[in-house]
Amino acid sequence: MIKYFTLPGYGNSGPEHWQTYFEQKLDNCHRIEQDSWDKPVLEDWLTRIEEVLQHEDLSNTILITHSLGGITLAHWIAKYKRTIKGALIVAPPDIENPHEDFGVHTFLPLPLNALPFKSIVAYSTNDVWCAKERALFFAKQWGSSIVEIGEAGHVNDAAGYGAWPDGLELLKTLV
Rank of each mutant, 00 (worst) to 15 (best):
V155E: 06
W37D: 09
K140I: 10
A159H: 14
D35L: 13
I64W: 02
N97L: 07
D44G: 05
P109Q: 06
D101H: 06
E151F: 06
T6K: 04
R31F: 15
E169S: 09
I64V: 04
I62P: 03
H66S: 05
H75E: 07
P93Y: 02
A158F: 12
I71V: 07
I77Y: 00
K79S: 00
N97G: 09
N126F: 11
W164R: 03
G103N: 08
K79L: 00
L7P: 01
P98F: 04
E100T: 05
G11D: 09
D101P: 01
E51M: 12
N97F: 04
K25S: 15
F107Y: 01
G11I: 11
G153K: 10
G167H: 12
T173Y: 10
N156A: 15
S36G: 11
E56T: 09
T72M: 07
V155T: 06
L46Y: 11
P98I: 03
L63D: 00
A159Q: 10
G150T: 13
R134H: 15
P111R: 00
E33G: 09
I49L: 05
T47H: 15
L68M: 15
H55N: 14
S144D: 12
A159E: 12
G162V: 14
V121K: 03
W18M: 08
I84T: 04
A74N: 00
S124G: 09
Y10H: 02
K140V: 14
Y80L: 05
N12Y: 08
S124A: 08
Y4V: 02
D38L: 14
P92C: 09
L58K: 09
I62T: 10
K172W: 03
L26R: 11
L63R: 01
N126M: 09
R82G: 01
I64D: 06
D27P: 01
C29E: 05
C130M: 03
R134W: 13
E96G: 15
P15G: 06
E16F: 12
D166T: 10
V128D: 07
L26D: 10
V147G: 14
G14K: 04
E96R: 07
A87H: 08
D101L: 08
V52W: 05
V175A: 10
P93I: 05
A87N: 11
I95D: 04
T83S: 15
K118R: 03
F5N: 13
N12H: 12
K3N: 15
A135E: 14
W37T: 08
D57K: 06
G150L: 10
L26K: 13
